[in-house]
């Protein structure tokens, strides 16, 4: 295959050695309309900071479009363009292929330019899944698709998405008199699914901005390695999850330390767990009970102990039964599933 694929050089973005070595300049800055304590806005800021000035960013419909850019005003320093809800994959392909053609044909200066398309969980895990999947099968375009996952359509009044956790209260899944749990689907395993399904994709990672250094270095690796890449970021959302904005950072840490959100990267097909997740997998760190995470959020306030136990059992299964713990949900034998009545 390689002989038919002509790959352009990428920018070589070296890992940032520590928070003290962090570049000072911002490329996504203030003046947006996002909520107090919006972790997704933090993702935008640190993603742009990691990528640097020679970058084009394409943003799918969602909070990071509506709240960030209020016409005739913006928060972006680097070029930014809106793309349709399900089009992050197509947008990245379009910009990357356009730049590539123009450079090859000598119509513009030949230089590596980062192309990043972002989408929320609605735009990525739901509507945009096929376009993202297609983009990841094109080894000849250098692009990064970053999915900021705040676990609901938070921009349209918080409706459930394929990425909303089991049982969560949303405007489309309100706990009622007859049904306590309206949303009984389990969260899609986006990064795992994409890594397993796109063998030629060189880099797929999960991140959380409560661990900014690793997250930013993930972005840098994704932009340097060549070809299409994907990063899935879990973003605590004070608005949709219903918690005090001051606790955004802590909420992200809890998602990881309870084992609900595993941190890993799949580089050239090689899986590597990192941070607390690695310690959990190696038994060097005892997972916090999910109760500590769930009951800090209003969206789970209606949970009974049975619901919490069930949630815990599913997370335990991730770590104790999955073929690749936390990543690939294949089991060695059939498990029975008993959600609470």
């Amino acid at each position: 295959m390689a002989t038919f694929v002509d790959i352009q050089p990428t920018q070589q973005l070296d890992p940032i050695k520590g928070v003290k070595k962090m570049p000072l300049e911002e490329f996504f800055t203030s003046g947006h309309r996002t909520c107090q304590g919006c972790e997704s806005a933090l993702v935008m800021k640190l993603m742009a900071k990691a990528a640097g000035p020679r970058t084009v960013v394409l943003g799918s419909t969602g909070c990071m479009y509506v709240a960030n850019t209020t016409y005739y005003s913006t928060s972006w320093v680097v070029p930014w363009m809106h793309t349709q809800l399900g089009s992050s994959g197509s947008a990245a392909m379009g910009a990357a292929s356009g730049l590539k053609a123009l450079m090859r044909k000598g119509k513009i200066k030949d230089e590596p330019i980062n192309v990043i398309a972002f989408c929320g969980d609605g735009g990525g895990a739901d509507m945009g899944l096929s376009a993202i999947s297609a983009a990841l099968t094109h080894p000849d375009y250098n692009l990064l698709i970053l999915m900021y996952d705040n676990e609901s359509y938070a921009n349209t009044d918080i409706q459930l998405s394929g990425s909303t956790p089991y049982g969560a209260h949303t405007t489309f899944s309100p706990p009622g008199k007859m049904k306590r749990i309206m949303h009984h689907r389990w969260k899609k395993n986006m990064a795992g699914m994409l890594a397993a399904g796109h063998p030629t994709c060189k880099y797929i990672a999960t991140v959380c901005m409560s661990y900014p250094l690793q997250a930013m270095n993930s972005v840098r690796k994704a932009l340097s390695i060549g070809g299409p890449t994907f990063i899935h970021s879990l973003d605590p959302c004070p608005k949709g999850w219903d918690y005090d904005p001051m606790q955004s950072h802590e909420m992200g840490e809890l998602a990881v330390t309870t084992g609900v959100w595993p941190l890993y990267e799949v580089e050239e097909g090689v899986i590597r767990l990192y941070g607390k997740t690695k310690e959990i997998a190696e038994g060097r760190y005892k997972r916090f009970p999910v109760r500590d995470y769930l009951l800090r959020q209003g969206r789970f306030a209606h949970f009974t102990d049975d619901d919490i136990d069930y949630f815990q059992s599913k997370v335990d299964q991730m770590w104790d039964k999955w073929l690749v713990p936390g990543v690939i949900p294949f089991l060695k034998e059939v498990e029975t599933d008993h959600p609470p009545k």
Partner: peptide
């Protein structure tokens, strides 16, 4: 959508 964005970068 692909060609829309390609055109936006000048193609």
């Amino acid at each position: 959508e692909i060609v829309k964005h390609a055109s936006a970068v000048g193609a």
